[in-house]
Design a protein around this nucleic acid. Structure first.
Length: 489
RNA sequence: GGCGCCAUCGUCUAGUGGUUAGGACAGCGGGUUUUCAUCCCGCAAGCCGGAGUUCAAUUCUCCGUGGCGCUACCA
């Protein structure tokens, strides 16, 4: 039977990085096995805080950005199959079937009673869970409640004894004692299903063969296993993946840095880098001593055996390193295009850049590309190309723009550059610098540092000759004259 | 509290009943270089603890400890 896996996000907000990692694992498994990757929207929680329709577009954008677009999903498929809110009758039918077979029962307990019960259980230090009161209701009492129109939920009638065991492809055999499994609510009093019912019905209807999801789902798996048995469905294979956590081993949160996938996109991480790094969170290729892999290479290597058991700490530094590596491997033309939005938001170029502006960017970008780790750093690295330095960095001003020597070097540079062509090629810039050094009987180094500080306002930046070239003769001379006036003796 | 899972350098991890326990990020040092960065070379850094099995345990078993997850009419 061919593999069918699914990614089942809830539209509760911008997708979390760990959630996307799970999507990637599903996609990879499907591709590796020649199977089908499906996405389904789990939108059964309709509370205002948890139902954010606008996040659906973000989910779609994230998957598309990474190139892990589902083969079947609500975008290209029948919404009655891939969106849970369209499938209420299916869940109702399943619930009816379960009630009929005695595997589920209506529960008329109020939220207040449930809350009270839980508080009381906690106070007494006993395991919390539904006390199964309504499970013991007589047929008569049930009828009475229903006739009276008392709102009710439908609960799973978990066997009172025995054990439920399932095999996890990552963690091995896992066993739970039935008497410790709560009588889970399957159908809310609104008639909407809870996750547990919906996921089982849908996975069955979609012919899902492997459930690949986060480890946090493990404790609820026995409930679903029971459901499969009671409904007479064929059980999928269970594959739980380790969680992605922060440096303190706790759930990744704002304290650690970005957590939403869209933030990484906005900051300027490349899809290839994100894909590569995320895959390595909880999966390893095996013996190969490398971590840079193309998508194709990962697809070829991805197996369940490679999934690790322990949670992975999200290492922002390593992601940055990897992203820098992918940036350096990006052709300059493409990189320039990728950087464009950051130049625009810095106000360096307009919303609709002219071809002259694009050409200029294409000259600037390669000068800083090897220092770039994340795209959004580009504007800060290159601002002096777009306007004269507002001020000179303190350290550089003291060291390189102070005293007679500095004065002499700048003047000599101005004189030398004046003899060059308007284009001021890189070679000419270098020659002029050398000439200036000779003229003031200085080493080349100090001249270079002085000029860099004078022209860019900073002590750190791209190669000086390339910088002068991009700036152009007129501009450079103007800046040098300004700096000359600023030199303190 | 209960239930479940996990445990190799700071981090991601490879690996093994006998290994100098390997790689990568980060750190540190050096080289190249006009600064930064890139690149290259090197250093430092790890098998949670205790029993047991065994000629031999980081590896297998048990216990402990620690961490995490779940414990909703959320997913």
């Amino acid at each position: 039977m061919s593999v069918r896996v699914r990614y089942a996000p809830s539209p509760t907000g911008s997708p979390h990085i760990g959630n996307i990692r799970t999507a990637i694992f599903n996609w990879l498994f499907a591709r590796h096995e020649g199977g089908v990757f499906i996405a389904r929207l789990e939108d059964t929680d309709r509370s205002q805080e948890r139902y954010k329709p606008e996040s659906i577009a973000e989910i779609e954008a994230s998957l598309n950005f990474l190139g892990v677009t589902p083969d079947e999903w609500w975008v290209n498929g029948d919404p009655n199959l891939y969106v849970q809110s369209n499938r209420l009758p299916m869940y109702q039918a399943a619930a009816d079937k379960l009630i009929e077979s005695g595997n589920a029962y209506p529960c008329f307990c109020t939220t207040e009673r449930l809350t009270e019960m839980r508080a009381e259980q906690q106070a007494r230090g006993v395991p919390s869970g539904y006390d199964k009161r309504c499970r013991r209701l007589s047929v008569d009492d049930r009828q009475k409640h229903i006739a009276a129109g008392t709102p009710f939920t439908v609960r799973l009638a978990v066997p009172m004894e025995g054990k439920t065991t399932y095999r996890d492809e990552v963690y091995g055999e896992i066993t739970f004692e039935n008497k410790l499994i709560d009588d889970q609510v399957l159908l809310k009093s609104t008639g909407w299903p809870t996750y547990h019912l919906a996921v089982v019905v849908d996975d069955h209807d979609l012919g899902i063969t492997h459930v690949i999801r986060g480890e946090d789902w493990q404790p609820s798996t026995p409930k679903q296993v029971l459901l499969y048995q009671m409904l007479g469905y064929e059980m999928p294979k269970w594959i739980h993946c380790p969680l992605i956590v922060g440096i303190d081993k706790k759930k990744l949160s704002k304290r650690h840095g970005s957590t939403q996938f869209s933030q990484f996109i906005d900051e300027g991480y490349l899809p290839e880098a994100l894909f590569n790094y995320l895959v390595l969170c909880g999966w390893s290729a095996g013996e190969e001593n490398r971590e840079l892999f193309s998508k194709e290479e990962i697809v070829a290597r991805f197996t369940i055996e490679g999934i690790s058991k322990s949670a992975a700490v999200f290492d922002y530094d390593k992601l940055r390193w990897m992203n820098g590596d992918y940036i350096r491997a990006t052709p300059i033309e493409k990189l320039t295009t990728l950087c464009l939005p950051y130049f625009q938001s810095a106000g360096f170029v307009g919303a609709d850049p002219s071809s002259a502006e694009m050409e200029f960017l294409a000259k600037v970008v390669p000068l800083v590309s090897e220092r770039l780790k994340v795209l959004n750093e580009v504007a800060g690295f290159t601002d002096f190309f777009f306007h004269s330095p507002q001020e000179f960095e303190e350290k550089g001003r003291k060291k390189w723009l102070t005293g007679e020597d500095a004065q002499k070097r700048i003047q000599a540079a101005i004189d030398a550059i004046c003899t060059k062509s308007e284009e001021l090629t890189v070679e000419e810039a270098e020659a002029a610098t050398n000439e200036a050094a000779v003229a003031c009987e200085s080493e080349r180094g100090p001249v270079i540092h002085t000029l860099r500080t004078a022209v860019t306002g900073r002590t750190v930046g791209p190669g000086l000759f390339e910088t002068l070239n991009v700036l152009g003769k007129t501009n450079v001379i103007e800046r040098l004259k300004t700096a000359l006036k600023a030199v303190e003796l």
